[in-house]
Simulated assay, not measured.
Amino acid sequence: MPSFQCAVITGACGGLGQSLARQLLGSGAQVALVGLNHDTLKALQALAPERCRIYTPDVSNAQAIQAMAADCLKHWGAPDLVIANAGVAGGFETSDPADLAVMRRMLEINLLGVATTFQPFLQAMLDSQRPAALVGVASVAGWRGMPGNGAYCASKAGLIAYLQSLRAELRPSQLTVHTISPGYLRTALTAGNTFAMPGLLEPDEAARDLLRGVAQGREHIVLPRRIGWLSQALSLLPARWHDRILLGQPRKPRAHQAGATPIPGLSDTPLQRTL
């Protein structure tokens, strides 16, 4: 296990986030766990109560995240690892006005939430003058838009570009920026998918590969690597052929459809969803 001393993880309540938390706590690190399910976080905290702090802010709420970061910095000082892992997924239909609220919320969590997570730690990490890493969990879905998945793909494509910009800005420092592009992980976000998921990876394996890759200084990490090769091979096809292949696949369930995963902060009422 790579040696990190103090880590912050958002989206720690499930899937990849839980696996990262367990592995970092198991390695002896101090870990701040950020998620929305207090009971789940408490169960993780029980693994190492003296080295674990838990917080339940919404990652799109800058004021709440800044309060969380202030508490972490007060007790532990600057972390050497911040993993912005919180994210939501769901289908999107541009013709449905209610889905505009879905896109807005997805951008708030998947894109803005990463910058909101990094911001209050950044200066302290720079001031420490110690090697440290900022990790953003994007997706291979950010490499190319997919039918019926425009909101998610847009949020992850925007995140990839944001991480590129941040990486360039921080080149002179000891702070590194890492873009994680998972394919399909066996988590709640993929449980409702009815389409083929090549290279489906268990969260524990993905967490090990992620931490190892960050420790090795890899700036772009695809999980698993073979799904990246497949995506790149498909990208060599003419766009019309590529689109035709994707159009033949079942689509990601949209909010409030069977198999969809909940999107925190998205109202259940159609009227409010359009506001």
Rank of each mutant, 00 (worst) to 15 (best):
L100E: 12
A141W: 08
Q123D: 14
A141T: 11
I109R: 01
A154G: 07
A132M: 10
V102T: 15
L159D: 00
A141R: 06
A115S: 14
Y152M: 04
L122P: 08
V82I: 11
P79R: 07
I109N: 02
C153Q: 03
G145K: 00
L111T: 04
D99R: 08
R105K: 14
P79F: 07
V135Q: 02
I160G: 01
R105C: 06
M103G: 06
P147C: 01
M106A: 07
N149F: 15
T116A: 11
G113T: 06
D80M: 09
V135I: 07
M146L: 15
V114M: 06
A98D: 11
Q129M: 10
T116F: 06
F121K: 02
R104K: 13
R130Y: 09
L100D: 13
L134E: 06
M103A: 15
G113R: 03
I83R: 01
L111N: 04
V114W: 04
Q119M: 12
V88Q: 02
A132H: 09
Q129S: 12
A141C: 12
E93S: 12
T94A: 15
M103L: 13
Q129V: 08
L81F: 05
L107W: 10
V137C: 00
G113W: 07
E93H: 11
N149K: 13
L126Q: 13
G90M: 03
L122R: 10
F118C: 02
G145P: 03
K156V: 00
F118K: 00
Q129T: 07
M146N: 11
V114G: 05
N110K: 05
D127E: 14
S95Q: 15
T117C: 05
A141S: 15
V82A: 05
P147F: 04
D99E: 13
Y152E: 04
A124W: 08
G145T: 03
P79Y: 09
G90S: 03
D99Y: 09
G87A: 09
M125D: 01
L126M: 13
G145L: 01
D96I: 13
G148V: 10
W143Y: 12
E93T: 13
I83V: 15
D99K: 09
V114H: 05
A161K: 12
V82D: 03
A138R: 09
A89L: 09
G145E: 03
V140D: 10
R144I: 10
D80K: 09
F118E: 02
A86R: 02
T116V: 15
P79Q: 06
V82P: 02
N149Y: 14
A157L: 05
M103N: 04
A86H: 04
A132S: 14
A133C: 14
V114D: 05
A141K: 07
D80V: 08
L100K: 13
G90N: 03
N85Y: 01
A151P: 08
W143L: 15
A141V: 08
G142S: 10
Y162K: 03
Q123T: 14
G158W: 04
D99G: 08
A138Q: 11
F118A: 05
C153T: 02
E93P: 01
A154H: 04
G90A: 02
S155Q: 04
N149M: 15
A138C: 12
N85C: 03
L126K: 13
R144E: 14
V135T: 00
F92Q: 00
A84C: 01
L100I: 12
A154P: 05
A133F: 03
P131W: 03
R105V: 06
E93L: 13
A138E: 11
L107S: 10
G87F: 00
L126Y: 09
